[in-house]
């Protein structure tokens, strides 16, 4: 199959064609740089605020994170998981990664995701978790409103 057969809507990466689809992903903080050709056919750096497909894919990835956080929140409310589980999801960690950040085994972390185990943790273990999750111990013990 020759290269050209499916190219119905070529998106020539000319300087003026560098997409500027702003989904506020950069929060107005800065523009990223893409490489594109100018009117003389020379490549140069061109600032961009984003491109629709990138924005869509990034939103999709965040949707997955948010779903997992919501799921954890529901389970905490239902009393089947500890608040640690919720904050772990907010930090986009699993038990293994949280274990690495705390020096605890993944198995120990999994145990502490159970409400009955979590309530029995001593102050120093709570502090270790709080530090790893960028929280105070008080925040760790609660769901944010």
């Amino acid at each position: 199959m020759p290269v050209h057969t499916f190219v119905t809507q070529l998106l020539p990466m000319k300087k003026e064609d560098v997409p500027q689809d702003d989904a506020n992903i950069l929060e107005g903080k800065f523009k990223v740089v893409k490489y594109a050709v100018n009117e003389n056919g020379e490549y140069e750096k061109v600032p961009s605020v984003g491109w629709e497909p990138e924005n869509v894919a990034l939103e999709q990835a965040w949707d997955v994170v948010h779903e997992q956080v919501d799921e954890a929140r529901k389970k905490v409310k239902a009393g089947t998981l500890s608040t640690l589980a919720y904050h772990m999801e907010v930090n986009m960690m699993d038990a293994a990664l949280l274990g690495k950040h705390t020096g605890l085994s993944a198995r120990a972390v999994k145990k502490h995701l159970e409400p009955a185990e979590f309530t029995q943790l001593d102050a120093s273990t709570l502090q270790i978790y709080a530090d790893a999750l960028l929280l105070s111990v008080e925040e760790l013990k609660k769901l944010p409103v």
Binding site: V7, Q9, E52, P53, A57
Partner: peptide, 15 residues
């Protein structure tokens, strides 16, 4: 590169 971008464009619409 343009072919890659067209792939991403269509993929974005599918997503």
């Amino acid at each position: 590169g343009d072919l890659w971008r067209e792939f991403a464009f269509e993929a974005g619409r599918m997503v």
